[in-house]
Design a protein around this nucleic acid. Structure first.
Length: 943
RNA sequence: GGGCCUAUAGCUCAGUUGGUUAGAGCGCGCGCUUGAUAAGCGCGAGGUCGAUAGUUCAAGUCUAUCUAGGCCCA
């Protein structure tokens, strides 16, 4: 037979027909779709359509406006978009206002690099203008990148922390918290370059080798105290330091609670140090290690008072700290809160004085008269001499070690305490209120998040707000030029905030104090009328922490608390916490009801992505090569609450899954092209059993998918829908349905029954996947609407993103069908296995060449097979099925799982029908159609 | 060094209060189909559940330690 003859009945079949392309061409299609959405003002349309509906507010945490987006930022934005789109399609009014963090160091650095200048060589007002432009440029770049990902939001009116209104609110919040007594000025050590006379940020410090004097010093124990060691002679605690110049500022000696300390004899006196480190000291002294008779834990020495090594009028306590190690020294740490980070931290706990008798040039001040005017590194020598004279120096040598240096002048830097602004996290029970809210009023996902932020809140010190930088919101405090009194009140804040709203916070630096202050302002202490401005700016975390005021409270369409914050896990210390503290200070309530965190994107090795290792995936190039939907599907397929891995191979795999979903849509669309739900729908009661079962199955899917979305578990959504497409649809329903769809009369009940269900499946799955595959779902939606639009299934919505998700349909739940088909699928699996055996043996090729004989002694199974007797050939996609109750002489195959089932597969009886390809003994029964079976004759004859 | 998290087939995920031979899909191998065709169907091979020790009649599931990796601190 020629090819033509084989296909001579092809045009009597109802083959699938759809212009929906098999190949997506996403990289090309998506930008066109975006253009259309933009022209149609899709986001505004959604706002309009949901007006008056219940709100769902996801408040965007602002990414930093520097550089292009990476996978972390892309993932976070995409996850937020999943939520917003799901909530929107669930009927909520879910506005999404994206934000950007615009002030701060990284932009300053980039600017200095561009300008080739340093902090002291630029004019601040000019510099800030440049920084503002720089930030705006990257806001633009990132905005376009986010839009390209398919993220919908109010892109033409985002919130920027450098917007004049936002900056004015930042100033106002500072004023409000100051007025409520949360803000104070205190001392804190920071890196300080004595040559440049400036504070240095951590990023401005370089580590290099430096030679320092290493000294072991005795701190004599004061007499008449509870002392755990017996038989001591002039006992003293021994400390080790490489910065003798900080000894004048010593305010304690820090031990570790669970470390062993002992008292040993040295030159007729008793010294106390960590047992583990005795060898360290005695080897330097070139002495034998003495016998140890007594050992106590550090905790037993807590509170012991010691004599100060420099100032004879001072006594200092023994305290306990976790930072004490046995890597070097004596296990007894000289603690000068004004000259070290850890010293400062532990000092806060013990309320130690933050002494820092060193001026900006690094010279001792008059607070230490004996060294006054001397540079600290020169002071080292004088102090060592002094210690020797006092007889408390045990040992000294020079050592070379890694030491911080200024990045600009490359000179060694020091830690120096300076005046800084703080939020007192314990004022008005801020900490307790926040902790209580975290525990009782906020849902955390994953659950461990709660413990993580709680332990941070419990331990965190006061929040240092001030930075000695150029690009940020000024700390809006004035000082009386005469008496130095602070000036900040409602009037000064109001006037300043108004000016900032008009001219941005640059106004602080451009105008004089007199111009910024209300007319006639006088110092309340001394009546002076001249003031100077604070020069420090605010920590950028204060900026973003203010967003619950500057955005949530200010924008009419939003509200506080937000329903959801969704950020990376690093934000426990960052935005989650600063927002909480500020909101607690402002309102006594947390700014969010739910907090979800995402992990980090890593390379496939499980390690960090890095450009140098070449395992870096750029989201932009993924969009350009594979399409944003592939990236979206990837982030929708992994458990983002943990760290996730991304690579080209992994993306390739998700692209395979995408193709399966896409082809399923193509099949569905192709088979409903001639179906109109308004006129062709079959009533539920008249549907075929299999079709009813599929509605049941779809309803189960809908329930699970909705639940997964509500729990923010998008990877479950993906698996549910993908598996439904693969197993329920492609492998079973669609395959089985082909005979009915292609062969049966186009508008007959059997075909319309199938189409009624296929249409619903197509529409519902398109909606369910739309929050994730936003572009593809929209593409499918348009093709659905081309075949038919119906209010009944919501396809009258112009775009899928305006449609509502399918609602619960309890009447589709059918437990009887569920039970029947669950068993029927098992029977089918057994039959397919035997078919495969016959195929290997060359007995059959296509399944339609086979006839299946079934036998079972199991009553339940037997009843089921009889009940579905007529449907069995179509379920197995074979030509004939017979139930044989006593065919003992045949060679039965036993079911592997269904042991009670026996199966025989043999060559089908009769001849292959040229139209439907089923084998039948009645082919040619009608003289008019010698090559057709009676079913096909009947169908063709009626047309 | 500290706080928190993660670890089930090559990959992405399931594995109820500890209870038969650890599941699914993808990918892979082999075959079928050529009326979803740069598609579709079937069968099959893949796992000492990160390691070790323990609790228990019974551990992927509970406990401890370790290893690898991550976030935040120091």
């Amino acid at each position: 037979m020629s090819q033509k003859e084989i296909n001579k009945y092809q045009n009597t079949l109802n083959l699938p027909d759809s212009p929906f392309p098999m190949r997506a061409g996403l990289a090309k299609q998506e930008p066109e779709r975006l253009k259309k959405w933009n022209e149609e003002k899709l986001y505004s349309q959604i706002r309009e359509a949901r007006k008056g509906a219940e709100k769902f507010i996801l408040h965007d945490g602002p990414p930093y406006a520097n550089g292009k987006i990476h996978n972390g930022t892309a993932m976070n934005k995409i996850l937020k978009d999943f939520v917003v789109k799901f909530k929107t399609m669930s009927g909520f009014d879910a506005p999404y206002i994206p934000g950007w963090d615009c002030h701060g160091m990284p932009i300053e650095h980039a600017m200095f690099k561009e300008l080739g200048k340093s902090k002291h060589e630029v004019d601040q007002v000019e510099f800030r203008k440049g920084a503002r432009k720089y930030a705006a440029k990257f806001v633009d770049i990132q905005r376009n990148q986010f839009k390209r990902l398919g993220v919908l939001g109010e892109w033409n009116n985002p919130y920027l922390t450098m917007n004049p209104n936002y900056e004015a609110d930042t100033v106002r919040v500072f004023g409000e918290l100051y007025g409520k007594g949360y803000i104070y000025k205190g001392m804190k050590p920071i890196h300080w370059c004595t040559s440049c006379e400036t504070a240095l940020a951590e990023a401005e410090v370089e580590y290099d080798n430096h030679t320092s004097p290493s000294v072991f010093v005795k701190f004599p124990v004061l007499k008449e105290q509870n002392f755990p060691f017996e038989n001591c002679k002039n006992p003293s605690v021994v400390i080790w330091t490489t910065t003798p110049w900080t000894l004048p500022a010593n305010r304690a000696v820090c031990l570790k609670a669970d470390l062993d300390y002992c008292a040993v004899e040295l030159d007729g006196e008793t010294i106390i140090l960590a047992t583990e480190l005795i060898g360290n000291l005695f080897s330097k002294l070139e002495k034998n290690i003495p016998e140890i008779t007594e050992t106590v834990k550090g905790i037993e020495l807590e509170g012991l008072m010691l004599k100060h090594p420099i100032d004879d009028n001072l006594t200092v306590p023994v305290i306990l700290g976790e930072h004490v190690t046995t890597e070097a020294g004596t296990g007894c740490v000289h603690t000068a809160p004004g000259h070290g980070q850890e010293d400062y931290q532990v000092g806060l706990k013990y309320k130690l004085e933050v002494a820092s008798p060193v001026n900006e040039k690094g010279h001792f001040t008059d607070d230490v008269p004996e060294y006054s005017g001397n540079f600290v590194f020169k002071g080292n020598k004088l102090i060592i001499e002094n210690l020797r004279e006092k007889g408390i120096l045990i040992f000294t040598e020079n050592i070379s070690h890694s030491y911080p240096h200024c990045w600009r002048c490359h000179k060694p830097v020091i830690f120096r305490a300076t005046e800084q602004w703080f939020i007192n996290v314990d004022a008005h029970d801020m900490r307790e209120t926040a902790i209580n809210a975290v525990d009782k009023k906020v849902n955390w996902l994953p659950a461990a998040s709660k413990q993580r932020i709680l332990s941070m809140l419990q331990l965190r010190p006061d929040w240092c707000l001030s930075r000695q930088r150029l690009w940020g919101v000024p700390i809006p405090v004035f000082y009386c030029k005469k008496c130095g009194a602070e000036l900040l009140n409602k009037n000064t804040i109001n006037k300043l905030a108004e000016l900032v709203e008009k001219e941005t916070s640059d106004v602080w630096f451009a105008k004089s104090a007199e111009e910024l202050l209300p007319e006639g302002t006088t110092c309340s202490k001394c009546n002076c009328t001249e003031f100077r401005k604070e020069t420090d700016i605010l920590d950028v975390w204060f900026d973003s922490g203010v967003s619950n005021r500057a955005v949530l409270e200010r924008r009419e369409q939003l509200h506080v608390p937000a329903d959801l914050y969704l950020e990376g896990s690093d934000q426990h210390r960052g935005w989650f916490q600063v927002s909480l503290l500020i909101a607690t200070g402002l309102r006594g309530e947390p700014p969010y009801k739910n907090v979800v965190t995402n992990g980090w994107t890593l390379a496939a090795s499980g390690e960090k992505e890095s450009k140098s290792k070449g395992n870096f995936i750029d989201p932009e190039s993924v969009c350009n090569k594979m399409g944003a939907d592939i990236l979206r599907l990837w982030f929708g397929s992994v458990n983002y609450m943990q760290d996730v891995q991304i690579s080209q191979e992994l993306l390739k795999q998700v692209a395979d899954s995408y193709r399966r979903i896409r082809n399923t849509f193509k099949f569905l669309l192709g088979n409903i092209h001639d179906y109109n739900p308004e006129t062709d729908a079959v009533d539920y009661d008249d549907l075929l059993a299999l079709d009813k079962y599929m509605l049941h199955s779809l309803e189960i899917l809908r329930g699970k998918v909705t639940e997964a979305y509500n729990e923010f578990k998008f990877y479950r959504v993906f698996h549910l829908i993908h598996d439904f497409c693969t197993v329920e649809l492609s492998a079973r329903y669609c395959d089985i349905l082909k005979d009915r769809l292609y062969v049966e009369a186009a508008s007959g009940l059997k075909r319309r029954s199938a189409q009624t269900v296929l249409r619903k499946i197509c529409v519902d799955i398109t909606k369910l996947i739309a929050p994730i595959l936003s572009f593809t779902a929209e593409e499918v939606w348009q093709y659905i609407c081309e075949t038919a639009v119906s209010e009944k299934d919501g396809t009258n919505a112009e775009t899928v993103h305006l449609a509502l998700l399918p609602t619960e349909q309890k009447n589709h739940i059918n437990e009887e069908l569920e039970a029947d088909y669950s068993l029927l699928w098992s029977v089918r699996d057994e039959v397919l296995k035997v078919l495969e055996v016959k195929r290997r043996d060359g007995i059959i090729g296509s399944g339609l060449e086979a006839a299946v004989v079934l036998n079972t002694q199991d009553e339940k199974l037997s009843a089921l097979l009889k009940k579905y007797k007529d449907a069995l050939p179509s379920l197995f996609i074979v030509s004939q099925t017979t139930l044989d109750e006593n065919a003992d002489n045949e060679k039965w195959s036993q079911g592997q799982e269904l042991k009670s089932l026996k199966i025989i597969v043999k060559k089908a009886e009769g001849v292959k029908c040229a139209r439907c390809w089923n084998y039948s003994e009645n082919v040619g029964a009608d003289d008019k159609y010698s090559d057709l079976c009676s079913r096909c004759t009947g169908i063709i004859g009626n047309e």
